[in-house]
Design a protein around this nucleic acid. Structure first.
Lengths: 125, 125
DNA sequence: CGGCTGCTTCGACATGTGTCTAGGTTGACA
DNA sequence: TGTCAACCTAGACACATGTCGAAGCAGCCG
């Protein structure tokens, strides 16, 4: 934590291009792992994975919290907490419009996570 | 744990084909989320993400624990614990040969996670 | 046989996480 | 202004997780 190298940030990661070689092709540097792991971690809860799915697949590209909350047997604050986690991980954005708050997915980071997991046609096996 | 519906399992998931529509195209059912979330969770730790990367990118398709352990400032038991987590998530396989234990990636589940995160060319944005 | 090395399991401990209820804060509307 | 609805934050609590040292198990080799 004592140094601040060129270091990646979530903002960089969302900048838009394939920053990340698939992990099956090249070993990830520690800093990259440190930046990307939280995003996977955020998807590592069934509720958040469903939330992410509902947000990412929303027809209008966005979805109201008031539509997310009743889809689960959980309290409002709990859903709010999970949404905060997704936001902190850089996976979604929130915008308040009047009484309601709308969430939308950030496709950039999703693409990066996907490309990271990409498995080339297995050369050997 | 009281019911056993058609329900997905990790074995099913590794069977090999694109079981999973991208979350940006269709909302994930709760059972699918429950099965896949642990895999993301396993990748949600920087150490495990690096381990996974080292295993998946190993030239021989496999790598010895004796090569993984010294790559981190962590005790042997801790690395072993993380490897167990990756194994439990179905992301890697282990095989003992003589004194050494070798780990190899399971490309099937990695492909599934990747396809789940796939973002089609954004229609709107 | 005895001892050594590689890896895992066990038990313990501090820290993190998911959930809740209670109590804000923000905006709409009469 | 007062009131209501939507959403978030704060505090609390049980449980999960990351880490370690110590101890166990499995194979090699003298």
């Amino acid at each position: 934590m004592s140094k601040q190298p060129p270091g990646l940030t979530l903002t960089d990661l969302d900048a838009g291009m394939p920053c990340c070689t698939p992990i099956s092709e090249q070993r990830i540097p520690a800093e990259t792992a440190a930046v990307l792991a939280p995003a996977f971690k955020a998807l590592g809860d069934p509720v958040r994975l469903q939330l992410m799915s509902m947000i990412a697949s929303a027809p209008a590209g966005e979805i109201c919290v008031c539509e997310l909350t009743p889809a689960f047997d959980l309290s409002g604050p709990t859903i709010s907490h999970h949404l905060k986690t997704l936001r902190a991980a850089g996976l979604v954005d929130a915008e308040r419009r009047g009484t309601w708050v709308y969430y939308r997915a950030r496709p950039g980071i999703m693409r990066q996570l996907a490309s990271l997991l990409q498995v080339g046609i297995p050369a050997s096996a």
